[in-house]
């Protein structure tokens, strides 16, 4: 009886030690959760989620202070990815934070612009160039389509234009299953 207990205890100790050693030796340095969430967010920096930028929102999600369905630019796919990452239930996009729109870039009507620099200050990614009393213009390649420049413009000369599909951005469609059609 005693030997049995000793043997079992011994095995338990040895295995425990092996497991403990393995967990230290083969430890996988994972990305901190905030970084992983931030990598899923679209980096529009639009603030529609109610946080000043994507990273603060990521921090809030990681801290359990925000829902995963507050990011309209990320859309349904983004919510699904977040749900997968965090093991939470998928929820549809919360309406109070906005609706999913096709990707767009801001365009300044250069005739109307008065050069007030307000949009330059509002742009979260410095994608607007110009100087005081000089016409401003948007670097389309860097514009995230966050729409933050629309409100500050005193002359409403900024509009959002959807990005047109070109042959370089065109995508092949998912092949359609024909099984059901044949039935």
């Amino acid at each position: 009886m005693l030997t049995a207990i000793l043997i079992m205890t011994g095995i338990a100790l040895v295995l425990g030690a092996v497991l403990g050693f393995a967990s230290i030796k083969f430890k996988v340095e994972g990305d901190p959760l905030v970084d992983q969430i931030d990598a899923i967010l679209p980096q529009t920096q639009c603030g529609q989620c109610g946080f000043p930028g994507c990273r603060p929102y990521a921090t809030a999600i990681a801290g359990g202070e925000a829902e995963i369905n507050q990011c309209p630019p990320g859309g349904e796919e983004g919510i699904r990815k977040l749900a997968d990452l965090l093991g939470r239930e998928f929820k549809p996009l919360s309406e109070e934070h906005g609706v999913e729109k096709p990707k767009a870039v801001a365009v300044i009507d250069e005739e109307t612009c008065i050069g007030c620099t307000l949009c330059i200050q509002a742009c979260p990614v410095d994608a607007i160039v110009g100087a005081a009393k000089q016409m401003h213009t948007i670097i389309a390649a860097d514009c995230t389509g966050c729409e933050l420049c629309l409100a500050p413009c005193p002359v409403d000369c900024i509009s959002m234009e959807p990005i047109a599909e070109t042959v370089d951005t065109w995508k092949w469609r998912y092949p359609v299953f024909t099984i059901k059609q044949a039935a």
């Binding site: 967010l41 980096q43 742009c123 979260p124 990614v125 410095d126 860097d142 951005t169 995508k171």
Partner: peptide, 22 residues
């Protein structure tokens, strides 16, 4: 799809960098 995602990721990374720099 992979190319599109790479483009998106690149755009997101640029935006993140620019935002952080701002």
């Amino acid at each position: 799809e992979i190319w599109a995602r790479e483009r998106e990721k690149e755009a997101a990374d640029t935006a993140r960098d620019r935002f952080e720099f701002k």
